[in-house]
Structure formats: C-alpha cells, structure tokens
Amino acid sequence: MALIQFTGTSGRTSGELPEVGNSAPDFELTKRDLTQIGLEDFKGKKVVLNIFPSLDTDTCAQAVRAFNSLAVEVENTAVLCISRDLPFAQSRFCAAEGIDRVTLLSDYKDKGFAEAYGVRFVDGPFEGLLARAVLVVNENGHVIYTEMVDNIGKEPNYKAALEALQND
C-alpha cells in the first residue's frame, strides 16, 4: 500500500505498483468508442501508462497534455492515459484540448486494472479513484520504470519516464 498526500490529508492505495523487471499485468479497459482494449493489444510496442484520478483536475489534465506532447519523441511507443472518467468525458476533453497522440482509457467497468496495478484509493477524499502513477513497459511486456507520485497535486517525472523509454 502506498500513502499519498493531499492538501491536509492523505489516502492509501489498494496495493503496490508492479516491480521493475516483472511482467506487466494484462488488463481490459474501455476506449472512448466504448470498445475494450488490453495491454496485449500493444504487444511489440513500448507502452507508457499514465494513471491518474480524473481529467477534471488541473494536475491530471496537465499530465495528459504533457504526455500528448512527449508521445511523438519516441518511436514504436503507445501512451495510455488511464482514469475512471467515463469515455464520454474523455472524448469531450480530447476534443477541447486537441489531444490526439495518446489513448485515453477508462477503468469504470470492471475495475480490475486498479487492483492489478495497486492504484485504487481505498480511503481518503479520492476513495475509489486511481492514484497518480506512471509505468513504462518495454516491447516484451516487462516493466522498466515505475513512479507512484506521493502527492496528488504533483505532476509525474516526465523526464525520467522519457529516459526509461529511450534507454531501454
């Protein structure tokens, strides 16, 4: 379990991120067109998992914008932005912000992703939502980088994630 700080309070997650070197757990998430997709669908590509509570917060929205910009810097890479936001809200956000290089995915249906990756808040003000985290998975499906952001108001370390992609 990770302890994540909020303004004046904190919340715990349901578990720990997968360890570097381990295989990334497969998952099934919902795309903006309401179809399902899994990690297996990105086999042979590097994958960045940008996980966050909601597009309706400034920090989360900024992280999606940042990863949208960074997505073009590394070939053969898919950037997945994952939250519990409904696909309809994700579509509105992408249209309003010109987000077109990342794939927004929702864990609103079966919630198995949150448990497999240990990112579901089990208490605190964001209980039930996803914690802010970044994982990088190589072409062979192994985790090569993880970051659980320890304060919900902080952005992830984009530079470290990008370096992991480039140095693998």
Rank of each mutant, 00 (worst) to 15 (best):
T59R: 08
V47N: 08
N50Y: 10
F27H: 06
N68L: 06
V47A: 07
K31S: 10
L34P: 11
C60R: 06
G38I: 01
P18W: 07
R32K: 15
G21T: 03
V48T: 04
G21C: 03
L17G: 10
G44K: 03
N68H: 05
E28Q: 11
L39N: 07
L34A: 09
Q62V: 07
A63G: 09
T35M: 07
T57E: 02
P25G: 08
S23T: 10
V20A: 02
S54T: 01
Q62Y: 14
L39F: 06
G38E: 05
F27I: 10
G15N: 00
L34N: 13
S69M: 11
A66N: 13
G44N: 04
S54L: 00
R32A: 13
A24I: 04
D26L: 08
C60G: 07
Q62H: 10
Q36A: 11
N68P: 02
K43D: 09
T35G: 09
V64R: 01
G15V: 00
D41V: 08
T59D: 08
D26G: 08
K31I: 10
T30C: 15
G15M: 00
F67V: 02
N22H: 12
T35N: 11
N68Y: 07
N50P: 12
V20L: 02
L49K: 00
I37K: 15
I51E: 03
A66G: 07
S54Y: 00
F27V: 05
S54N: 00
T59I: 14
F52L: 05
T30A: 12
D58Y: 12
D41K: 11
T59N: 09
L29F: 09
K31Q: 15
G44I: 09
N22R: 14
T57L: 04
L49W: 02
E28L: 10
E28T: 13
Q62T: 13
V48N: 04
E40W: 11
L17Y: 11
N68A: 06
D41M: 07
P18G: 08
F42S: 11
T57R: 01
S54I: 00
V47I: 08
F27Q: 09
K43N: 11
G15T: 00
V47K: 07
T57A: 05
Q36Y: 13
G44V: 08
E16A: 15
P18S: 03
L49N: 04
A61T: 01
F27T: 07
K43R: 15
E28K: 12
G38R: 03
A66M: 14
F67Q: 01
L55K: 00
L55A: 02
N50C: 14
L55M: 07
